[in-house]
Design a protein around this nucleic acid. Structure first.
Length: 800
RNA sequence: GCAGGAGUGGCGGAAUGGCAGACGCAUCAGACUCAAAAUCUGACGAGGGUGACCUUGUGUGGGUUCAAGUCCCAUCUCCUGCACCA
């Protein structure tokens, strides 16, 4: 059969769609499989080959599951709120709705051309008001349960995009969207109390199947540490200053204190501070730096001693100086630390520069050179002297400070609460009303969805105000509580909102009574397997886990964790080995590949190009190699023979079924395809193949290259869709050949090979190996010290 | 600095402690062709030998083992994430 991909791909895509064979069935008796891929942001540029690779893994698994008899939910949708669309709207004067619809149509067309087996009846769009109604509903639930709060704070602000960014969106001090420098700005910010769920997010990781590095990254991000809060008294003032430390055992070594430049204590006691000028100068200098710059200046410690305030070490009673320095952050712990220069390198550097005492309390290092943070015997530490075990010293100290009433054990998280508002148009309106008398009032549930008003101008207002602030008809409203005139919140939610629960909506996408029917949620959840990118591990995945834990706590969903298993795809790099980017001109358009080589070739190539989870450069010639392979496969139909000789292929087939079945489960797509290529070479080597064998081959390749395989199935007289045929089974006993070639080593060096009966006993194998002419001549006159046989692999003779 | 991962032909990459380089690409030679493309056959880590073969070879240096790409110790390089987190 000639492989005319142009003709057959369109044909089968139409047939699949008309027959609706990829639709998930609600209320089925079959076991369920919920495969999820990260839904795309429908940008104007259209799809990227990276999307194809990202979706291909679960596309293959989902197709295999259907053949294995599962009821499969494999949905797709669009995460369509976001800045690029809004910026394009500003530039062209086109409404974001229009742009979004166009882009979604484009993506849909592209996805269909690749032949993905998505259930197209369940497509969702986060910008659809019937969808964001429920995003707002979840927000109100969070509000109701005290997990939403408003605070004036220094925030990461992008002057170019004119929006507030979360820490996650401004990693490295750069705006995640436009890559300009982020500055600190004081603003009213809506926060979601994700820190309330820090422990649950940490604990939940123990019950899910995520790759180790993904778990580790989330653990680091949550950043739990255990330690103690200790109060230091300020000399002559009726004031306690609380610090957080992970090393309460070193309390005897505290020789100074440092507080963050923004610490409120400074303003409170401004009249007592003698060098307020110097302090103010230092503070304004710090304010100019971005947080990123502050954290980068690792080497040179800066700071100013507060003249006029002294603290008391509560455990020794010694008076110690207090400094301000920007190596202490207001945002972590209490914004104040105890300085233990002998056992903390940062404190050591600070003490050296500012002349503070250095008292050794743990033996083992050389504190004339650097701080010592290892273990050792406690000295100069009163009741702790002689302790050698860190855990015990900490426990003993905690006991003491609690008895003295000066502190207590505690935990801290690096994770911060989630800044949840953006001053933008193209996002979900935050359903909140500001009333002069009642304060912050939630929009009543029955008024949802709170729709985005029609606007002509999408430019953000002065000072980065939301474009919605300019729409009087939107802003002006009445307070639901007291009925007086009130104003609506004009900020919208961040892009991460809609994607934090979308997998629940796929389960029941058209429900107007609930975000999804509880019975259906019970059947389909959790997501069995979720594939996506590494870049979402500390944002989307954490956020959605947070929302899902919350929904579990209020009884909306039946599992605490949304994703039972997570996998990661590696990047596709440009042919030059660099990350694909428009500016480098190394971007490959997947539709070009579909046009030139066919969807099956594209699908096969992205899975064959290398280790699925590793970054691999694109290679046009290898694409051609995959096309050649598929052409050879379609050529099988011209080689069909019922000759008994085709039985010679039996073992090869059973081996291949076994290997492909297990490799696909382990996402080793490259070796699964390699096994099919090897089998293809075997078939061509024999020159004939039975009809049944061709059909088995087609089934194995079907999840990867479904169009050509359906065609082979039809041409060879198969009935119905190949995509719905049962997955091939292998017989373990038939996966081994009657004879095996094994290597023969002498003193660990390969000296030849012999053919043995596969089930031969050890002694028989040794006899055959010794009888081999070459081995015999090499061992002549030598003494056999040891003989080793690894079944089916190798023989090793140790001789002297 | 901390955590995780990776270093294998010209390239992408395979190898439950057991014949290193599967499979694919590129390259070379041959067949077919007037010719080219396509296709088919063969060769293809390095060094040596007319040859059967020999030596050597998985970042580097040690070690364990009958046997090491794989395990252990040390070391270098690269990637990813976090990072003055008290």
């Amino acid at each position: 059969m000639k492989h005319n991909f142009r003709k057959i791909e369109g044909k089968w895509q139409k047939k699949w769609e008309n027959a609706g064979i990829f639709k998930a069935v609600d209320g089925s008796d079959k076991p369920k499989f919920y495969g999820l891929v990260e839904f795309p942001y429908p940008s104007g540029a259209g799809m990227h080959v990276g999307h194809i690779k990202a979706y291909s893994s679960l596309e293959v698994i989902s197709r295999k599951r259907r053949m294995e008899g599962y009821n499969v939910l494999f949905p797709i949708g669009f995460d369509a709120f976001g800045l690029p669309t809004e910026n394009y709207a500003i530039k062209t004067g086109t409404h974001p709705r229009v742009i979004t619809d166009e882009n979604i149509a484009k993506f849909t067309n592209q996805l269909k051309k690749v032949g993905f087996s998505f259930d197209w009846d369940r497509v969702i769009d986060t910008t659809d008001e019937d969808y964001y109604k429920w995003t707002q509903w979840i927000f109100l639930k969070l509000f109701e349960h005290g997990l939403v709060f408003r605070s004036k704070a220094l925030v990461n602000y992008c002057p170019s995009c004119k929006v507030v960014l979360s820490n996650e969106d401004s990693q490295g001090g750069k705006c995640d969207i436009c890559h300009s420098d982020v500055v600190q700005k004081s603003k009213d910010v809506w926060y979601l109390r994700i820190t309330e769920y820090a422990d649950k997010l940490l604990e939940g990781l123990e019950h899910v199947d995520y790759p180790a590095n993904v778990k580790q990254q989330q653990v680091n991000w949550i950043g739990k540490s255990t330690g103690a809060f200790v109060n230091f008294t300020l000399e002559g003032l009726n004031e306690q200053m609380e610090i957080y430390t992970t090393r309460p055992d070193t309390l005897f070594g505290v020789t100074f204190m440092v507080i963050a430049p923004e610490h409120p204590l400074i303003d409170k006691y401004a009249d007592r501070i003698k060098n307020m000028d110097a302090i103010e100068a230092y503070r304004s200098e710090c304010a100019k730096k971005t947080e990123f710059e502050r954290t980068q200046l690792v080497k040179d410690k800066t700071g100013v001693k507060i003249d006029g305030i002294e603290a008391v070490n509560p455990i020794t009673g010694n008076k110690i100086p207090v400094f301000i320095a920007d190596y202490v952050m207001m945002g972590y712990g209490t914004g104040a630390i105890m300085g233990v220069p002998a056992h903390d390198q940062r404190d050591y550097e600070f003490a050296k520069k500012f002349g503070a005492d250095i008292i050794e309390v743990i033996k083992g290092g050389d504190i004339s050179v650097e701080a010592y943070s290892g273990d050792g015997e406690m000295v100069n530490s009163g009741f702790l002297n002689g302790y050698t075990n860190k855990k015990e010293s900490i426990a003993r100290m905690l006991e003491e400070i609690e008895k003295m009433g000066i502190g207590h054990a505690g935990v801290q998280f690096k994770m911060k609460d989630w800044a949840f508002n953006r001053q933008r148009y193209w996002g979900e309106p935050i359903p909140i009303i500001h009333c002069e008398d009642c304060g912050v009032v939630p929009v009543p549930y029955e008024e949802l969805p709170l729709r985005l008003p029609k606007v002509e101008n999408f430019e953000p207002g002065a000072e980065g105000e939301s474009p919605l602030a300019k729409i009087e008809s939107f802003v002006n409203c009445t307070c639901p509580k007291c009925g007086k005139k009130a104003r609506r919140e004009t900020d919208t939610m961040p892009q991460w909102a809609g994607s934090s629960w979308y997998f629940l909506r796929y389960i029941d996408p058209h429900n107007d009574q609930a975000l999804a029917d509880p019975e259906k949620l019970k059947y389909w959840m959790p997501v069995d397997w979720y594939n996506g990118g590494m870049e979402h591990v500390t944002r989307h995945v954490i956020y959605s886990r947070f929302w899902h834990h919350f929904l579990y706590d209020i009884g909306v969903v039946n599992t605490p964790e949304p994703y039972a298993k997570r996998s990661i795809q590696g990047l596709i790099l440009g042919p030059d080995g660099d990350k694909m980017s428009k500016s480098k001109g190394n971007v490959v358009d997947p539709l070009d590949i579909v046009e030139d080589y066919g969807a099956d070739t594209l699908r096969t190539y992205v899975l064959f190009m290398g280790d699925y989870s590793a970054a691999t450069p694109w290679n046009d010639n290898s694409v051609k190699g995959c096309k050649r392979f598929l052409e050879r496969v379609s050529g099988f139909t011209d080689m069909i023979s019922e000759d008994k000789e085709t039985r010679k292929l039996e073992t090869a087939f059973h081996k291949t079924i076994k290997k492909v079945s297990s490799d696909l489960e382990e996402m080793k797509f490259n070796t699964a395809i390699a096994a099919l290529m090897t089998l293809t070479n075997d078939i061509y080597g024999l020159g004939k193949v039975s009809k049944e064998q061709v059909q088995t081959f087609a089934k194995l390749l079907c999840p990867i290259a479904p169009h050509v395989c359906e065609e082979i199935w039809e041409v060879t007289g198969g009935e119905g869709f190949l995509s719905l045929q049962p997955w091939p089974q292998y017989d373990e006993s038939k996966t081994v050949d009657a004879q095996t070639e094994i290597g023969v080593q002498i003193n660990g060096k390969l000296r030849g090979t012999v053919v043995i009966p596969t089930n031969a006993e050890k002694e028989e194998v040794f006899a055959i190996a010794r009888a081999d002419a070459r081995i015999a001549s090499l061992t002549e006159g030598k003494t056999f010290v040891k003989e080793i046989y690894v079944p089916g692999r190798v023989v090793n003779f140790v001789v002297k």
